[in-house]
Design a protein around this nucleic acid. Sequence first.
DNA 1: TATTTTTGTTAGAGATGTCTAATTTTTGGT
DNA 2: ACCAAAAATTAGACATCTCTAACAAAAATA
Lengths: 226, 226
Amino acid sequence: MYSQAEENYLKALFSLSNFNGEVNVIDLSRELAIKMPTVTSMMKKLAGKNLVHYESYKPLRLTEKGKIEAALIVRKHRLTEMYLVEKMGFGWEEVHEVAEQIEHINSPAFFDKLDQLLGHPKVDPHGSPIPDKQGNMDVMEYRNLGQCEKGDTVKVAAVTNESDEFLMYLNSKEIYLGLEMVILSVDPFDGLIVVCYSGRSPEAISQKVWERLLVEKLEKDPQNRK
Amino acid sequence: MYSQAEENYLKALFSLSNFNGEVNVIDLSRELAIKMPTVTSMMKKLAGKNLVHYESYKPLRLTEKGKIEAALIVRKHRLTEMYLVEKMGFGWEEVHEVAEQIEHINSPAFFDKLDQLLGHPKVDPHGSPIPDKQGNMDVMEYRNLGQCEKGDTVKVAAVTNESDEFLMYLNSKEIYLGLEMVILSVDPFDGLIVVCYSGRSPEAISQKVWERLLVEKLEKDPQNRK
DNA sequence: TATTTTTGTTAGAGATGTCTAATTTTTGGT
DNA sequence: ACCAAAAATTAGACATCTCTAACAAAAATA
Ligand SMILES: [Mn+2]
Ligand SMILES: [Mn+2]
Ligand SMILES: [Mn+2]
Ligand SMILES: [Mn+2]
């Protein structure tokens, strides 16, 4: 239906859309590593296909149709990642690149099968929600580790960066989705957070790392677990 | 490494290469449904990459490098088809189109994983041999059903056409790879072959169908098999 | 062998998606 | 309000892959 290039622009617009849904040309340009004039001309093309609202010098916005089409590509990407991890035995640090390619495959039957074999999963291996077949995506209400305080018990719910270096760093620290950790201290000066998990000795987490971790805050009730 | 277009030309050249390895521009043009001038210019480009021997008005030939690259794409196609059928539950009539796309994915780890999960299969769901990682492909010595005679017992070994209509026709007749059939009669005039298999009542097979079936001739020894 | 048909090449153009250089508009600081 | 910096657009070019029209070579036929 849409070219691979068009799909990549839609997906980038979708992920850059903030609360008001506005995206600047320069941000899209940086995200895709494509120069601004190229972005501008593609935006005019997508506007012609009713996928983007475009007016000169105004911020970009996806149309309703554009949002749905983008979400459907994100769906294919995330189903692919989930299948690669759950059914084929890849690590969560190995799947983003190849999913970036497989998401452009045109075969509804193929992606329906992934979804079926996975039992209609709601999140991908990085904790991101998988949009449904209508293009609706749940908004997850996770918080940043930095928004927690000493004494909180939190559960790792998602990562906001999929680079293999970052994920391999987490692997080396034995940090994975679902892991529960207790916050021992938060340093307001350098942003260092010390946590304890899995019965290991306390571990310092730098801001660079915790900025990329989303967590769920658990009730302070150590009784009813472990 | 190579573009999707280049890969499709390589694969078509590979499959059209007959005993002497020569392919005419017009045949490649028909196979790919691409006009002859376009084919000529792509051949010059592939010759520049040392994948094709090209001389004006002479038949086309893949270089050794071209043969290997082509075989490696065929390998990806056939591993994909095998995985879709064996591990995901697709029918053999559903997989060719999507494999046509997935074969262009650039991810050695992905195809190595398919190969490993499948236990290093030697043939695909249509009975075609899967080239190894060096690009070597076995030459199967199957014969056409038309080259058999009354009384022969044969085993269906491969199909030479992957259209879903043909494969669904075979499905409807309960003909599949590995099926053994006895040839009851061969009509030299209209090419009709009557066979018996699976304890069913005799079935007439038209030339259009048997031309697309490759079989293995079994020893005439009804003793050691049911 | 001469003619016709088939096959293949050349020339020129269009669609897509990218770039750089130059210019314009908007934004932010003084 | 003015100026400088940042952001965005316009203009023009290029690579890739495709096409049609015209022409040339090779093969088939008479
Ligand atoms: Mn991803
Ligand atoms: Mn992509
Ligand atoms: Mn196939
Ligand atoms: Mn293909």
